[in-house]
Design a protein around this nucleic acid. Structure first.
Lengths: 205, 205
DNA sequence: CTCCTTGTGTAGTGGTCGCTAAAGAAATAG
DNA sequence: CTATTTCTTTAGCGACCACTACACAAGGAG
């Protein structure tokens, strides 16, 4: 047994190449990024890309995973441990405002709008982001239901409608960011979105 | 002078072909729709398409115009004549909920997510939708500013933040619709989004 | 009828798409 | 050293991309 890799060592940094791919897909979407674009940006030839990542689709999936693991982390997974659902959702929206306007990176969210509309043959790319958005929605919904069970939300509140709304605000902020909204403005959007949070009184709506 | 066209008459219905193109671009985006896809769906050959529409980009622009003139009409242009800004914005959101879930048409908004991310060479397609979204935002903002001048909105309200928020909700509903939300749920989202509208009292936020 | 205009069908343009076969280069194993 | 493994380079695969040259068809104008 050996501690070193056997054959000729890879001549480029795989992690760095993956970051490059993430940025490309993030900015131009799945259909809008060609393998030639990727290899050019990575500074490698096509066979090296295929040896390291398998295919364009696998590279896309891995780029998505890198995104949600690093820059796209909005704290949705921590919603359960937030002091209140209100604080948790507010934190998620503010994290989104910052993530969608990070200097040196494309505006908006790679998951939200990276591959919303694709060619018929690339439907898998669409579904990859759809699943991630659904997961976010599910975590929002679960936290809101728990809040209602805890009495934080009044009985009259509709957790599904609230989850739909905050998911929509989240994805919408991504589009607004793409259109050039600044971080300051998006943070204000996040704050203002919380104004509709139902009050704990019995007449809340 | 003559009342009839001179040469050989066109063998297909240009308006119907344009509707077909709109549906294709709507569902698959600009990059995701090839000219071969279009001619196949239209039932014509490529030269007929180019004779009638000029180029893929011009066809896309014309499809966008058809969309905003018909199915994508959300009443944003009528915001000025609404009884109140609140009613006007609410009507726009409800119109969006219906437009984004029209049976027989792709879910979501062609303007919102038709060509958010494109290849470098197709940036014009991106910009075409960006301009339309900016116009929507501008009309929302203008109506909100007027509402503040009229006293409908308190001095403490921030029309820019409100326009950003309602624009985000609008575009976000498009994504949520793409992910499968029903018309009923989107209408509830539209209603709930109005819960954050500032009250006219002096302590409004 | 002929002339002119305009659309259609066939066939194909050069270029790019995602992807890979084949041969050589660079490392370890023995 | 040789053998083996793995990556890189070159070159190119067939298919598709947006688009068009060209011959012909179908109408009105005279």
């Amino acid at each position: 047994m050996s501690t070193k890799a056997r054959g000729r060592p890879r001549g480029f940094d795989r992690d760095r190449a993956l970051e490059t791919a993430m940025a490309m897909f993030w900015r131009h979407g799945y259909d809008g990024t060609s393998v030639a674009d990727l290899t050019r940006a990575m500074g490698i030839a096509a066979p090296s890309l295929y040896a390291a990542f398998g295919s364009k689709q696998e590279l896309y999936r891995e780029s998505l995973q890198l995104y949600v693991r690093t820059l796209g982390r909005l704290g949705v997974a921590n919603l359960g441990s937030a002091a209140s659902a209100r604080d948790g959702v507010h934190a998620v929206l503010r994290a989104a405002a910052e993530a969608f306007t990070r200097p040196g990176f494309p505006p908006g969210c790679m998951v939200g709008i990276g591959s919303l509309r694709c060619a018929e043959d690339n439907r898998v790319a669409e579904e990859a982001t759809t699943e991630l958005r659904s997961a976010t929605h599910a975590m929002l919904l679960a936290r809101l239901r728990q809040a209602q069970a805890d009495g934080e939300l009044p009985e009259s509140a509709d957790p599904t409608a609230m989850a739909d709304l905050y998911a929509a605000v989240l994805e919408g902020m991504s589009v607004v960011a793409t259109d050039g909204a600044t971080r300051t403005r998006l943070l204000a959007t996040a704050d203002l979105a919380m104004a509709g949070w139902p009050s704990p009184g019995p007449a809340a709506r």
